[in-house]
Design a protein around this nucleic acid. Structure first.
Lengths: 190, 190
DNA sequence: CGGGTATCGTTTGGGCCCGCACGAAAAGTC
DNA sequence: GACTTTTCGTGCGGGCCCAAACGATACCCG
């Protein structure tokens, strides 16, 4: 994950590259470590518990959401799972093909699609989730309960901050310099 | 990110689903918040600073690594960037096509490939990195410097723990129940 | 009722992501 | 020198990921 360079070496190399520009090192280390930790965690789960069930991280999260909340509209599943609705369409297709979830339609609103676990999916989650939680405990093995709670609380404040202020911040940045259209995405047939 | 369910509702729903099985809630909240925060952060960066330069998160990380360390062997770039070498091949191809990096070969070891920034790549990073750091500061705006340092330190201990113990743990788990081959990956032509 | 407008899930295009199987090259072994 | 083993980057298959464009449905309003 961190490679063979120490923190000190990295900091020094950055300073050489951008000598005079003032940087927020504390923010840099906090943010980059969040991402490094998340990648390491995902990697660990995918190559341990999830590997055994032949389920990807994202597929597991989707299964988890539907398992906890029962039958659910796809837009809510995507929101809870933290993926776009377009991505969910693909993931749901994969899971449906493996017989773990099934789709239903809403009684009164014809646009909506509902997702729910099949019996096979229920059975999978019943066995998988305890194993998953055991790995979560392994990941934070070096921390005590107070550390975990403090960590969760700190991260939660970051998440909430981005939820509440992120849109505004992005809009303000766009106002300064309007962005180019994304390199990918469907082309307008003009 | 969190959807419209509160933490309490979620906890209660989990408890109903898995009533008698003892769970490590503190570990669950800590780990899941790491991942949620990482996703929110990546999302914020991709749709703000990186969007303006038409660069994905991963592409930026790769550029950053090569920028900081100068000419570098691909295996080390992949390691520092936290991606597999197979992934790096594709990302490097994209960046090379956009004229941001170039490849070179090692003087004595014919297997190695070296990556370095082009002038255009240097110029891009010189402008992009300060903007990136400004967003990092925005992300942790609600925390003070001590919070950031404590957060970084806590996360670092998780990362190191996974680096040091992860392999062993995964091997132990595999020994209990051998995993199936991964659903994807090149097929053996048997 | 009839015509906008908003919202749903899906499709599409481009890109990242991994693990595995290569072939090439190096390093070790005799 | 010939043989084996290791390590390198790459090719490939399958899957996730997003933004934008869409068709279908529902809602709003006169």
């Amino acid at each position: 994950m961190t490679g063979h360079h120490t923190l000190q070496e990295t900091e020094q190399a950055i300073q050489e590259r951008l000598g005079d520009v003032p940087l927020r090192h504390d923010a840099m280390m906090a943010v980059s470590n969040i991402y490094r930790a998340a990648a390491a965690i995902r990697q660990h789960f995918e190559s341990s518990v999830l590997r055994g069930a032949d389920v990807t991280w994202t597929a597991f999260v989707v299964l988890w959401v539907v398992w906890i909340w029962g039958e659910m509209e796809t837009r809510h599943v995507a929101e809870e799972a933290g993926i776009s609705k377009g991505t969910l369409t693909g993931v749901a297709k994969t899971l449906e093909g493996r017989g773990l979830i099934e789709r239903g339609s809403h009684a009164t609103d014809g646009r909506l699609v509902l997702l729910r676990l099949t019996d096979k999916g229920q059975e999978l989650m019943r066995g998988l989730f305890p194993a998953f939680n055991a790995e979560e405990a392994f990941v934070v093995e070096r921390l005590d309960e107070d550390d975990n709670r403090r960590l969760a609380r700190t991260l939660r404040s970051i998440i909430e901050h981005l939820e509440e202020q992120g849109d505004g911040r992005r809009a303000a940045l766009r106002a300064e310099s309007p962005p180019p259209p994304r390199r990918s995405g469907r082309r307008s047939r003009s």
